[in-house]
Design a protein around this nucleic acid. Structure first.
Lengths: 258, 258
DNA sequence: AAATATGTTCGATATCATCGGACACCTACA
DNA sequence: TGTAGGTGTCCGATGATATCGAACATATTT
């Protein structure tokens, strides 16, 4: 067999994997006990116990009530990771602004480890309810902003991406064919913006644009999402793209000068 | 020497400490290189390199530009940890509401590993700028909401706390004497709310109350902070406490029935 | 009271995390 | 051009340790 996949990268800290397996498991369903985690991950109870105790001693998890919960130090980590993105404040403001003027959901994604990650989000209707789902991930090829980001990738990066990624069928419309994706990206490059017609979620449309830095490399992607019966026709195909292109342009300028 | 402090808890996953040392270091000043982290932590370059590579392979950190940055998976962790607190939405709303009506900063703390951690915060003036500093920590004895929480501790828990904690002098007014603290807590218990007169930061006053669950155990603490020249007299000593007590009561009811 | 499940501790063993050293690469700077 | 200092990366040896299974304690249930 060829060394196709490098199944286990050599010279890694093995216990780190165990540790994060445990953490992810605790994250998944908070309040889990030692035995539950042990059963789910197929590690010896004593091993899980050791890790959980270590994590608690180091104050990264908490033993509240019956089971274990992620500690708030991760909130600190997360805020740091978020604020570390140049222009985050500007991005957040712009996202809220677009959500308000359009009355639809607006979000900003960044690319990380070949995934699209929500960095900011706002839901229009009530300005209070902001940032739902921040930090969660979806495949780049299945998000309008994600496709807009992919369209800005160099040929080299794109080839790498297409080779590594495993396409998942989120809906019947999700792009799962490399050639179709390349074709779509070419169109996006030409137009300057991307559409998403029920490729992420049935009944949901979206428009997306890439936001690039001074050197033209993508910082992230901005998109507006809404029900397909509302996002259609002229509004969907012209007005929203124009709005987003303007917003992206403004963002790019502001970020460059901050 | 007596086994007073249990300096190193036995049977812990040692490499976890190294791992989190590295992570904290990367968090501290984002964009650090292998050598910088190695020098700062006094681990061999190869060791740091190994950990960083592992963390990158597992997609918890990112190699952007010159150095390493915390990955956005921690944002996901953090949001999970935050949302895991029962009634977080209600808390956030209430905090925003209080900030708006008072025009001062309002925040909600929870206790975790004997620290007060910001769970929600709002700054009054512009409702957009919300949640600054979420996830950061201050000593319980040095925050008004923290003292309110301490006042609800059982004698057992309080004794443990006072024994473990190392008092730090944040300002000249910070309480650093166990007896003074106990005295203060007794007063708070009697009154039902706590004051903070420049004990955290010079020129800053605050009022705090505890929020308890159905069983009377503290969920967290609610407080209003502002410049000492504005928070004084009748307003500070009566109006704000009343407002906060009402808010806490309302919160307690809403959380109990959610 | 027996029985099941769960948290916790312990001992043995093979694994592995750590370190220091070596190499390759890059940038200055002479 | 060549040397010197810095950095990222790889490697080998060794002492430390993460893992497992078993055993014990405790709690809850039957």
């Amino acid at each position: 067999m060829p060394p196709a996949d490098t199944p286990d990268v050599p010279a890694n800290v093995q216990s780190a994997r165990t540790l994060f397996d445990v953490l992810e498991c605790v994250k998944e369903g908070q309040g889990k006990t030692v035995s539950e985690v042990s059963a789910e991950l197929d590690y010896a109870r004593s091993t899980v116990h050791r890790h959980l105790r270590t994590l608690e001693d180091l104050e990264y998890i908490v033993h509240r009530g019956e089971g274990y919960h992620l500690g708030l130090r991760f909130l600190d980590f997360g805020m740091n990771a978020r604020d570390n993105y140049a222009g985050y404040d500007l991005i957040r403001q712009k996202v809220a602004e677009i959500a308000e003027t359009t009355g639809e959901r607006c979000q900003f994604f960044v690319e990380e480890h070949e995934d699209a990650v929500y960095l900011a989000r706002s839901v229009g209707e009530n300005a209070v309810q902001t940032d739902p789902g921040i930090g969660s991930r979806i495949p780049l090829y299945a998000a309008s902003a994600g496709k807009a980001i992919l369209a800005e990738f160099s040929e080299q990066k794109l080839s790498d991406y297409i080779e590594h990624v495993t396409f998942e069928q989120l809906t019947t419309k999700t792009i799962t064919d490399p050639d179709v994706l390349r074709e779509e990206l070419a169109q996006i490059r030409e137009r300057g913006y991307s559409f998403n017609r029920q490729e992420t979620l049935c009944g949901t449309h979206a428009v997306g644009v890439a936001v690039t830095d001074a050197d033209g490399r993508p910082i992230g992607g901005l998109s507006v999402t809404g029900p397909s019966h509302r996002l259609k026709g002229e509004h969907f195909e012209n007005e929203l793209p124009d709005l987003l292109l303007g917003a992206a342009n403004e963002l790019e300028l502001n970020i460059a000068f901050s």
